[in-house]
Nucleic acid binder design. Structure first.
Ligand SMILES: [Mn+2]
Ligand SMILES: [Mn+2]
Ligand SMILES: [Zn+2]
Ligand SMILES: [Zn+2]
Lengths: 158, 158
DNA sequence: TTATTGTTGCAACAAGGTTGCAAATTGTAT
DNA sequence: ATACAATTTGCAACCTTGTTGCAACAATAA
């Protein structure tokens, strides 16, 4: 089965089968289980970030319990295998962190762009507070974390 | 009853009673009803943004049905009387738009700072995408809206 | 192979929010 | 003041997203 691991950059295309998925789990220090392989399989084939419900539906026959899926997604996100992005509607989307891992670290604060049309989620460079904001921060605000989400139309949908 | 309408700026202090609340509702084109007066009364006396549950609790005796409260908050937010700010935990907080209305328009995109300690929500100046982001946008992304939330410690809690 | 530890499925629960509808209330026109 | 149309309210039922506790089960390491 042929799939594109990096849909947004369209740089590398690889064969993915059980073997690859197992080693991916290994690489992130996760035990290899049937449920995790199935969930990872779904994520790896999706160019867009999926909701819990989306994933459950895409699993079809091979479905898991919904709680197991929540727990699986948590462990994937905790170890950095996937990222978890909040939507406008206050629910979560999950996707392989498929940008260039060197330029877009999973754990650092970075912005996400969500396309109103195709719903694709893009990682954007880290936010650098502009001058005005820096002024505000100097007035006695100290920053611990931030969430920056951009909505609009992506290059593919223009 | 003496309350401070603008807690964050601490600029003007006014008497608020039924009369003022009614005219505030009028000003925003809303029918004056008992429920709205009661909800507005709670919001007007709070220096911090409140959740639906907070408001219900603060209404005590004079409580309304929870659905009525949701609907009331929606109409307040729709007409710009209050603003509705998402928290990290994916729930909503409601507060009078009590910054300087000239510098911080309700409807424009602006950032919110939420204090981890006191939970106060501050409106911050509009976000100006930094250079890197502008580059990304020029690459074919077009921006329609954004949500920018900052978390940390506010001046009052230092 | 077995022991240890992490993972799964199930049922029950919880928060936050919405829908449909009948009854009550508001603003307005007479 | 009265009547009317249009909104608003309360209630019950429902929905979505996500969590908890627990017993059974499976993956790894010794
Ligand atoms: Mn990301
Ligand atoms: Mn605001
Ligand atoms: Zn798109
Ligand atoms: Zn504070």
């Amino acid at each position: 089965m042929r799939i594109c691991l990096s849909h947004s950059s369209l740089k590398l295309t690889v064969m993915i089968h059980d073997r690859e998925l197992r080693s991916l789990l290994h690489k992130f220090g996760l035990k290899v289980t049937a449920a995790r392989l199935r969930v990872l399989g779904v994520l790896v084939h999706s160019p867009v970030a999926l909701s819990h419900r989306d994933i459950l539906e895409k699993m079809g026959e091979q479905t898991t319990d919904k709680v197991t899926l929540y727990r699986t997604l948590h462990s994937f996100a905790d170890c950095g295998l996937i990222h978890k992005v909040a939507t406008k509607e206050r629910s979560w989307r999950y996707a392989l962190h498929n940008g260039d891992p060197d330029t877009i670290p999973h754990d650092g604060d970075h912005a996400h762009f969500i396309c109103d049309i195709c719903e694709r989620i893009y990682c954007m460079p880290a936010v650098i507070p502009d001058q005005k904001q820096q002024v505000e921060l100097k007035r006695g605000f100290s920053l611990r974390s931030e969430e920056y989400r951009l909505h609009g139309t992506c290059p593919q949908c223009h």
